[in-house]
Write a protein that binds this DNA or RNA. Structure first.
Lengths: 161, 161
DNA sequence: TATTTACCTACTGTGTCAATATGTATTTTG
DNA sequence: CAAAATACATATTGACACAGTAGGTAAATA
């Protein structure tokens, strides 16, 4: 299951992609707009900078911007940076010694097949593909929602049954 | 990522499927054969009984057996019983109120597409499909491995780096 | 120099994972 | 009936990740 880390990261990327022409966008803006704790976003965004997804600029007028064009970001790269390797089972992780059971393991072919499918899916999708889905911002602000309401899963709110 | 709970459960199912004609198989046999802690397996197997996957019988001569034919078990059912819902994001969970962002969420279509793909994959595969992959047990016992070696991921051994 | 911004370190509370430990209940066998 | 073998039940543990919060430092602009 993709955690808030990965989901928020993708939303930050979308925010920055929409802001491409306007230079840097501050974290305060992004956090308020998305209804996410700014402090928590700082942690996420730090990893995104060190991972080479975005570029930060300090001081007044600073903020964040994309490091590449939206077409150049496979979604899988964003997810793997935030969530770790996109593999279904530990024995398929990179750099792990081949499992001694591999030779006769009945389940390995299934995991490999699923792994391939997942990898193809998330590396086939690009950030630019997600921008196509977007509706106008007016529609959404006109609805009169507070920032808090437009969250979608701090996961806490929904998990009590 | 599928945890040991789900992976061990599938291996137990395979063990029991291979034992179909011999009545009940004890947990001790399964645990020793697979090199898994019997005590830990008890927890897993309890959920499998209450989930209707297998049937237990107490007392001498008891053990566990499948509740249905191997063709009647979608792998997805086993995984979801042990790991919880097979959805990539919280907002797609059953019984969760529709996310207020759903209308204009740029990422939801992607998650829905992936969710559908995953569901189809794991509910298309059956326990009987995994049995086809099996090689003879002789090959594996003749290799002179101890039970400990044939584990494949208590996840501890590989996760240090 | 003051303000604004990103950046850094540490901490917290809740929960899950992967077990371990210790017992209870039930069935077969001697 | 007693003993053994089995499943079933409850509690606890240590390590770790998730989702934040708190309080600061460094750099750029006005």
């Amino acid at each position: 299951m993709i955690s808030t880390k990965g989901r928020y990261a993708i939303r930050v990327m979308i925010s920055l992609a929409e802001n491409m022409d306007n230079g840097y966008k501050t974290l305060r803006e992004i956090a308020e707009r998305q209804g996410i704790s700014k402090k928590y976003l700082e942690i996420i965004v730090r990893d995104m900078v060190s991972g080479g997804l975005i570029v930060g600029s300090r001081g007044k007028g600073g903020g964040y911007r994309l490091a590449r064009q939206p077409e150049e970001y496979p979604i899988g790269e964003i997810i793997e940076l935030m969530e770790g390797p996109l593999v279904p089972v530990a024995c398929l992780e990179e750099g792990v010694a081949t499992c001694p059971r591999a030779m006769y393991c009945e389940t390995l072919p299934m995991w490999e097949e699923y792994n391939q499918m997942t990898h193809d899916f998330f590396y086939g999708k690009r950030l630019s593909d997600l921008l196509q889905n977007k509706k106008t911002d007016e529609r959404h602000e006109a609805a009169g929602m507070t920032e808090k309401e437009e969250n979608c899963g701090a996961a806490r709110e929904a998990s009590d049954e």
